[in-house]
Every structure is written in structure tokens, then in C-alpha cells.
Design a protein around this nucleic acid. Structure first.
Lengths: 214, 214
DNA sequence: TCCTCACCGGAACGGATTATTCCGCTTCGG
DNA sequence: CCGAAGCGGAATAATCCGTTCCGGTGAGGA
């Protein structure tokens, strides 16, 4: 947790690049790739964050906060429960939100800061509130769990090898495709809905693609 | 292309394990992990396949053939165009089909065998036939391209850290969730549909998760 | 029973990748 | 023109992974 760092735009460039790289390739992606995207030297990253682990933590904090903002914003701006959910999902999948980085890695949350754990549970309860409200209003199929929404996020955010803006476009495309299916349950969903605990165990991978031949 | 190999069940164990590992973690996953899953020594893999590249090629061939079978089976068994598509998609996402491994890696198809390229284009034209037929019958939204179907496959096949049977269950769950949204276009899809050429450029990553702390 | 041979699993090797550190250079204030 | 602060990228050391090597094992024949 960097306490007082000099205020440059380096900070946001680094975090933005790290979010992009981690989101796309997973936390195994090399720091040098982040430096390349941020147009910054590797050392400049280490000058601000003591280790890769710490950088990852900051990225998680930033993204989780952003998701929370999206949820609160959706709750504040929309009254119709379905519209709340809709706005929330589009918001989360918007460019630079960095969903897909908010779930903890394989092996659980040990070593996470109190701050991040707090943000995480806040995020989860907001999503549950949104989902439950939509279901109570009969506008969202009842056999869906809040955790399903996160799996959908994960599904809609795969590491495709294009630039971020195109990926954002595709995310919106497929969310639009998926949304109508969420409303009414013509056919009951097969399989058990995932629990948060199970979801917690589903890590992201996305190790390094071949950055050499480029 | 291994010409004549001794007939053990090793062969199928290796291919099955490789398909599972490559599907989940991408082609960057270590061979040793495949050996572990197959309960086989590393050398036993190399005794049959001259290199990792060759093994990957065989896995691709096996999976692509399987997808082709699913498509032909669906076309043969169903007459209703929508049911053809439906059966095809469920079939592809069934356990052990290994979809998600059939798209070429970053950097194109250079070095692929003629056989695989032939299978690939056969697979693509079958999918296009199925999609087009459903659209002509007015049972599938018209602003969807065949390549979208593959992106959906990719979306529905993310590397979740569970056993394969649970993953298959979840794939079915989310396909059921998604399918109804494909039928009618209440809202037009935003963004440009991906072209095959673009899809070709979208590689899979999924580099190695931490196999050490397990 | 003992020898031979085919085959297997896992350790060993060498190259490649990467987190982290070090250092010379640039730049800006005085 | 000097000095310091901050930067980029090369250098370092450890790790990982593809591939090869080797001793072990068990079936089958003498």
C-alpha cells in the first residue's frame, strides 16, 4: 500500500495499463508488458509499487471500487429494478472498468488487505441486492443467482487478442445478445448455480501469450 | 503425424488429457501437467508425439473432427433449423468435446497440416450452413454471424478451476441461459460482427496457473 | 530361474522467461 | 554550469518448461 507517492500521471497510466494487461492476460502477465503499454520504464513501476503482488492488489482495489460505483450509480439513477440491473451490467462491461480482475486468484484471499476484503464484500452485497430486487419484481428469472452474474461477467470478458476498444464493442454486443435471455424462464436452468465460495475457487489464468514475435 | 504407434490405451489417455488441459489453460500449459492428468510419464508422451507442437496439432484435429461430427449429427437428426442449431451447440459444449481448442493460435495457421486446414474449413462451412438455415427460417436473429457462434463458444468455455464435469454442467447452464436471447432481435446488436479473419487473430492464452502450490 | 528386450516414469539438461535491482542519462531548478 | 530527482532499460538471479537420458520393471522365452 503506497502511502504518499509523488503525484504524476504516471500513477494512473500504470494502474490503467496494469488493469488492462491483467484483465486480458491474467495476473501471470509480465510486468514488462505493463510497462510497455503504459509507455513507462519497468523501474518506474517498481519505484511506486514494492512488488508485483502489491501492484495487483492496487489494481484489484481500483477495479472493485469501480464496480461498486457502477452498482451505486445504477441504483441511484434507475427506479425500475430491471433497468438497474441492465445499467449495472453495461456499466461493468464498459471500457476500462476492468471487471474480470475483481475475483480473487486461485488459492483464496489470504494475503489480501483488509481494505480489499471490505470492498469485495461490499461489492457482493450490492450485486445481490440488485439481482434480488429484479427477481422480486418478476423481471429476472428466479433460478438465477447473483454469482451467476459474475460468471456471466467472466464469460463476457475473455482474453481476445484485439485492442481494448474492439473488445469493449464485442462485450456490449454479446451482453445485448444475452440480456433478453435473462428475463423469463421458458426452460429451467440445468445444473446447480455456483455459490460464492465456489466462485472464489475459480481463478483466472491467462498466462503470458507470446509477446516475443510481435 | 505419428504414423504407426503401438496400440495402447495410452494414446487416448494422452489425447484426452491434452485436450482437457489445453482447453482449460491454453496451449501454453506445461506438458508435465498433461502427463500428470493422464497418469503417464512425460517421456511416454514424447515417445508418441515428437514435440509439443505435434501433440497440439493432434488435439486440434481430434477436437475439430468432433465438432464436425456434432454438426453433421445435428443436421441429420433434426429437421427444424432451430433444433439443428440447438442440438449442435449443446453437443459442442458437452463434456469432452474440447471446443475452445479448435481456433488457431495467435499468428495464424502457418505450420498447420493440410489435414487440419481442411477440417477447419469444413467445420466453418458446416457452422455457416446451420446458422444461415436457422436465419432463413426466421428462427435466429438475422444480425448474428456464424463467427459470433464461435465467440459464444469461447465465452461459454472459460478456464474455471473446477473439474471438467462441473464445468460441463455450467456450460450447459449458461447455454440454456443464452439460447433464448438468440431468437428474436428485440434490440439490434451493437458493434460489428467479427469476421473469420478477425476471429483467426483472436488467440487463446490461458498460460500456466500455479501448479506448484497444490 | 535367469536373461533379454521393450517400455515406462521421473530426474537431468539447457534454453528461455521474468521479477527485481542497478546504473548511467536526462532534465529542470538554481 | 552544477546537482539532484526521476527515468528507461540493461543486468542479475531464480524459475519454469520442453526435451532427452537413464536406470528400473515385468513379460516371455530358454
Amino acid at each position: 500500500m503506497p502511502t504518499t507517492r509523488p503525484a504524476t500521471d504516471y500513477d494512473e497510466r500504470v494502474i490503467a495499463a496494469a488493469r488492462e494487461v491483467f484483465t486480458q492476460y491474467g495476473f501471470a502477465a509480465p510486468i514488462s508488458e505493463i510497462a510497455r503499454i503504459a509507455e513507462v520504464g519497468v523501474a518506474s513501476i517498481y519505484r511506486r509499487y514494492p512488488s508485483k503482488r502489491e501492484l495487483a492488489e492496487q489494481v484489484r482495489i481500483a477495479s472493485t471500487s469501480r464496480i461498486i460505483e457502477e452498482a451505486e450509480d445504477a441504483l441511484a439513477r434507475e427506479s425500475e429494478p430491471w433497468e438497474v440491473l441492465r445499467r449495472f451490467m453495461y456499466g461493468c462491461l464498459r471500457e476500462h472498468t476492468g471487471i474480470g480482475v475483481v475475483l480473487p486468484p486461485h488459492g483464496g484471499c489470504e494475503g489480501f488487505s483488509e481494505e480489499l476484503l471490505r470492498l469485495r464484500s461490499r461489492m457482493i452485497s450490492l450485486v445481490e441486492r440488485i439481482v434480488t430486487a429484479a427477481q422480486d419484481a418478476g423481471e429476472l428469472r428466479a433460478d438465477l443467482r447473483a454469482a451467476d452474474v459474475f460468471v456471466l461477467f467472466k464469460h463476457l470478458n475473455p482474453p481476445l487478442a484485439t485492442d481494448e476498444s474492439r473488445r469493449a464493442e464485442l462485450r456490449a454486443r454479446y451482453l445485448t445478445l444475452v440480456l433478453p435471455g435473462l428475463r423469463e424462464a421458458c426452460v429451467p436452468l440445468p445444473g446447480q448455480a455456483p455459490e460464492w465460495e465456489e466462485l472464489r475457487r475459480m481463478c483466472e489464468e491467462g498466462p503470458a501469450p507470446d509477446h516475443s514475435k510481435e
